[in-house]
Write a protein that binds this DNA or RNA. Structure first.
Lengths: 232, 232
DNA sequence: CATTCCTCTTGATATATATCAATTCTGCTT
DNA sequence: AAGCAGAATTGATATATATCAAGAGGAATG
């Protein structure tokens, strides 16, 4: 494992405050692996033997039932996923596959649970992380139940814009097919949503989105801090 | 606070393992209050000054945006709610109102956070509880994204049946208006969903639901353990 | 450079769900 | 017991979203 990869893992909220000794123990037990694109890393229902950390690339968390499939989250570097299954030692509720070639750190769940029992700072960090995850899903739920498909797309663009520096020029970092599934709609409908948003101050050219009239877009999207704010 | 109420709070996963001393400290700092039906206990965006425990009655957690409203959960006795906001000291993401006359225990968040820092067992219990909450919302999300409205109703009936003893006779414990909102549909559509389910082995008379053909219902609903199992 | 595959887009249509309006039902109050 | 208010149902219709089918563009491959 490269030194700066190790540093970026250490910098995560989850690992930042634990003792150096315990962090080293975790890293020694862990495997850093490189996977090609479109490889299934975990499958819904499997037991949670590892905590996963996306070090490089990107992972899609999705779920399947009765032939249908939906994307539940996109995990970008550097973040962990399936912490809840790991700490509860219960089967995964989601499957996960690489979107592109990715580097993933696999930390054995038994080590996570052992150190959770002995390292107060780590235990506290897990609480913070889980609470954060919970709130993110709740927001996502509200987004889905309280907004139409076009509104969800509009607010997604607004959130991208904030993360990209509020200059009105944003680039889609995931494919439109994935984005559609994440937002709970079909790819065809996403295409049409972009067309609708042309009359609300947005123009889309491939992965490049330009917000020509931010006020107009915001007036349509009606962003809500308790759905869209990433920080709280 | 009555002795058996105190006992049922103590029996909750969250409080079961903490020291008696710390539990007593929490209970001393807490207020047990009785509220009439349809009283708003917490409002989205307010700061989380208390952790709430529904001791008796029932509480609806809901959210509002741009004039629309949706029910996110129904909390039955004896359970806590808004733990995540409490431990992170962040604003509520949901509002909460009593459905019927209810007894609610309010535990000051500062005491929760203080004892979380000193009581290992309590900290561990919070992790378990948050992980559980997280998994429940994820399941709810999958239910919403992977199923049609009628399928959600069918699976809701199946889950009720399991909790009620699998005898094919279940009773709705919440109003149909609330149920519709919880399942992400209109009351009119819930009515029609019940009609559709008549041809799949279900008959509905007011709050009384009879499953006349469990296999037929299950064949239609296609229940999925990673969405519908309460225990995992 | 052409081919192929894949994603994206567009149009036509079907289905799911919501809305509006009108009753009916039900429990509660007086 | 009559009346009332909220809840639930039903029908008619509108809107949102999905599906099916076809075509257009783009990047990888030979």
């Amino acid at each position: 494992m490269r030194e700066d990869d190790r540093k970026s893992v250490r910098a995560l909220g989850l690992f930042r405050d634990m003792t150096q000794e315990n962090f080293d123990a975790l890293m020694t037990a862990a495997y850093l692996q490189r996977f090609p694109a479109h490889v299934e890393l975990i499958r819904e229902g499997d037991s949670a033997d590892f905590l996963y950390v996306v070090v490089d690339g990107g992972v899609e968390l999705f779920s399947t039932s009765d032939g249908k499939e939906t994307t539940l989250a996109i995990v970008s570097p550097v973040s962990t996923f399936i912490l809840a299954a790991t700490v509860k030692d219960l089967p995964f509720l989601m499957s996960g596959r690489t979107l592109v070639q990715s580097q993933v750190l696999l930390i054995p769940s038994v080590d996570i649970r052992r150190i959770f029992g002995t390292d107060d700072k780590f235990a506290r960090a897990i609480v913070t992380e889980l609470a954060q995850c919970y709130r993110v899903v709740v927001k996502s739920m509200k987004n889905l139940k309280l907004r139409t498909a076009v509104e969800r797309v509009a607010n997604y663009i607004l959130r991208l814009n904030i993360r990209a520096g509020r200059d009105g020029i944003v680039t889609l970092k995931i494919g439109k097919r994935n984005l559609a599934s994440l937002l709970g709609m079909t790819p065809e409908n996403l295409s049409r949503a972009f067309n609708v948003l042309q009359s609300h101050g947005v123009s889309v050219d491939g992965v490049h989105i330009t917000i020509s009239d931010l006020d107009k877009l915001a007036a349509f999207a009606k962003p809500n801090p308790f759905i869209d704010d990433m920080s709280s």
